[in-house]
Computed example of a mutant assay.
Amino acid sequence: MTRITAWRRHPLARYAVLILALALVGMVYTAFVQAGRPADAALASGKLDDVAAGKSLFEVHCASCHGMNAQGTSTGPTLIGVGAAAVDFQMSTGRMPASNPGAQVPRKPMAGWVTPDKIRQIGAFVQSLGGGPQVPGKEQVDPALGDAGKGGELFRANCIQCHNWAGAGGALTQGKYAPNLNQATPTQIYEAMATGPQAMPVFNDTTITPEEKRSMIAYITQVREQKDPGGFGLGRIGPVTEGLVGWVVGITALVLASIWITAKKRQKS
């Protein structure tokens, strides 16, 4: 007892007690977080079984690049915290699994083994690892419930620098580019804003609210349906394409006119 009493009166005793208390709090917090993760995954996928099935699929098709625990490797980034929305976006657009990694992975048809159910299961597993944005519901992405006018203002303020006013896309630096949005579904557009794939920044709900995202989706889907009554749209890429066509067509017309005028003068002489 005397030795215990002496340790209690030691100047470092209070620090030892503080470290022990912090360690205990950390263990309790970790236990609660681990216990809550399956519930989060179930919320994202609808079934707890999806987590186990997704883990098996992930180990077979994804672990070679992202690691067995999705911690990331030299060939693939970590997926901890990216959420089920990132998985759904990357796999439903055919970007993942990547067949030829480069500066930017292009959109392509989905791999033969990829189905909506398997995407949901892998998404549930990734969601269970560290949370993150979840796949939006139908009402969240319904263009009919959005304000296309307000969405146009938001799109012009945040997106046209890369995607062009009509969502036609454009070139970026170091071999990257902003993709054309005409093939993207409303769900994929929402997920891209929420997760920020590749060179795109993340627009979380504090930057652009879910209602504003829905309005932007309404604008994007409305613009892609517009016609070009004034002539050829030229891909709606902008003044560079228009200038190039004007220059080529104009110069060609002038050259042909010069040849025709010269030929006429020779005949008269």
Rank of each mutant, 00 (worst) to 15 (best):
residue 120 R to D: 03
residue 140 Q to Y: 06
residue 192 A to H: 00
residue 52 A to Y: 03
residue 188 Q to N: 14
residue 61 H to E: 04
residue 227 K to R: 10
residue 70 A to V: 09
residue 199 A to Q: 11
residue 174 Q to E: 13
residue 239 P to R: 07
residue 167 G to I: 01
residue 60 V to E: 09
residue 13 A to K: 02
residue 210 P to R: 06
residue 16 A to M: 10
residue 1 M to G: 07
residue 140 Q to M: 11
residue 261 I to F: 05
residue 145 L to N: 10
residue 227 K to D: 11
residue 8 R to I: 10
residue 26 G to R: 12
residue 50 D to C: 00
residue 62 C to P: 00
residue 5 T to H: 08
residue 11 P to C: 07
residue 193 M to W: 12
residue 120 R to S: 03
residue 188 Q to V: 11
residue 250 G to W: 00
residue 199 A to E: 11
residue 229 P to M: 06
residue 206 T to A: 13
residue 35 A to W: 15
residue 110 M to I: 13
residue 130 G to H: 02
residue 108 K to R: 13
residue 39 A to D: 09
residue 104 Q to D: 11
residue 150 K to D: 10
residue 177 Y to E: 03
residue 260 W to S: 10
residue 12 L to F: 08
residue 118 K to M: 15
residue 206 T to K: 13
residue 40 D to Q: 10
residue 238 G to K: 05
residue 56 S to Q: 13
residue 218 A to G: 04
residue 163 H to D: 10
residue 208 I to G: 02
residue 37 R to C: 04
residue 93 T to K: 07
residue 142 D to I: 06
residue 71 Q to S: 12
residue 197 P to S: 05
residue 35 A to M: 12
residue 248 V to I: 15
residue 23 A to E: 15
residue 218 A to Y: 02
residue 205 D to S: 13
residue 6 A to P: 03
residue 178 A to N: 06
residue 52 A to S: 15
residue 138 K to A: 14
residue 163 H to W: 09
residue 151 G to K: 01
residue 3 R to T: 06
residue 33 V to W: 13
residue 208 I to Q: 05
residue 128 S to K: 01
